[in-house]
Each structure stands twice: as structure tokens, then as C-alpha cells.
Amino acid sequence: MDDIARPRIDVQALTLAYGTAPVLKDLSLPIARGKVTVLAGPNGCGKSTLLRAIRRLLRPDSGQVLLDGLDIAGLNDRGLARQIGLLAQSPSAPEDMTVEELVRLGRYPHQSMLQPWSPQDAEALESAMAGTGVAHLRQRRIGSLSGGQLQRVWIAMVLAQETDVICLDEPVNHLDMAHQLECLDLVRRLNVEHGRTVVLVLHDLNLAARYADQLVFVKAGEIAASGAPETLMTRELIAEVFGVEAMIITDPVHQRPLCIPIKGMTEQG
């Protein structure tokens, strides 16, 4: 109950348009403290836009995003970066950069003119690399890494930022199945072991149901439903939000709901 009463992030009546086309319409969403929240929905529904608005990469036309009750519009860039970390959808850095140099950039918001590089920064750097299992790669150039390794390095950079909230925009998009699981297990571990609040955008509904504490369905710029995966993964909701006729069973291994799509339903039909 406490989680709902004092959400970590509270999105209030957010409206945001690209040009004249509204992408988010009067959208409100409390995001629970210390939980994994997954935003899911069909292409173009606004889930990535919502995540970008939460991280203030986009300015809303109206409404606000509260972080612990404070409007993030009032925070400075580095201050916000000390509170909310972000893994971009397709992050990039020069190929000849070393792993350590990249992870180091996560400490940027903690440094200042008077405090260029402190023991605290070094400690955060080491623990971020250790926590993601990339410490042995520190001298490697990132261009020489595999897709799975590289994604772990990017997560290490976000981790080095030492933010309580971490946003990840489709972090497993370009990964094969083994690395998808490895990446999401790592994210889950950060949440469990360090109590970090995680907000994820995921394309794969079954991965979403497997890793989410709070699942959010976004449809046409509005929240279609929000809650525990068990309550959201129903035939009716999946038909309404994704336009897919599906069967829902319980994953016999993880005891999570599993969606078996049967066929797409056209709007005209």
C-alpha cells in the first residue's frame, strides 16, 4: 500500500505532441518505488515517448512528472542525471573507446570543477563493472565486443551513475535469446539486490510479463491498463490493446502468465 501511496515517480496528466499530432493524451501513471515497471504496447502507442518524457528528454505540452513529489522540470541536467539513469534505445560511442573509458562517463554527473575524479568515483566505476561482469574487459575496445558484452558495458555505464531510478528503452531489441535473458536477469538483480526502481520499455509481451512487478499497457497515448501481470494478461485486454486473439496460459516454469498469440484481428473485421 505504501508503494502506491508514495510513488517514486508520478506522471500527472501528461500531454505531449509531435507537431500537431498528440502522442500522449492526458496520461497519468504512478510508478512504484523499488519495483520493476514495464511499459508495453503496440508500435507507435507512445511507450517510448512516455519513457523519454519521464527522463525529461521531451518536454510535455502540459502536465508534469514528479520525482518524489518534485517536478523534474525544475531540476538541472546533472542533478536529474544523478537521480534517473537512462539506457538509450540504440546507444553509440566511438569503436576505439575502451570499456573502462565508456563506463567512466557514467560518473560525469557526479564530477565538478572542484572535484574532478574522487575515490568515490573510482569505487562506483569498479562496482559497476564488477556487477555487470565486464571488469575483465576493461582494456578492450568496445568495437571488439559481442552484442551481449556490449549491452552489459552500456548497463555498467548507467550503473556507474548510481541513480535510484533506471530507465531502459528496449534494452534487448538487438540481442539473441540467451543475451536477452542475461540482460533482463541482470536488470532484475539490480532491482532485487540494490532496491533500484526500474522502468523498462519492452516489445516482447512474454518477457514483459516475466520480469515486471507492475505491467503497463499503453494504447494510442493513453494507459489502457496497469497492474500485476496476472491481472493484465487476459484475453480481453490483449485483444483490446494489441488487436490479437490470444490464449493465456501459466508458464509452467516461472508461474507467470504466458501469451500464445493465435491470430491478428483487423479493426475493420
Binding site: 528528454l57 541536467d77 546533472r78 542525471a81 539506457l87 538509450a88 546507444p91 560525469y108 555505464m157
Partner: peptide, 10 residues
């Protein structure tokens, strides 16, 4: 970094 990631670190 790319623009989004640079903004991500502040």
C-alpha cells in the same frame, strides 16, 4: 556518446 546517452549522463 550519442545525443540521448549524453543527455542521460547529464
Amino acid at each position: 556518446l550519442d545525443e540521448t546517452s549524453a543527455r542521460g549522463v547529464g
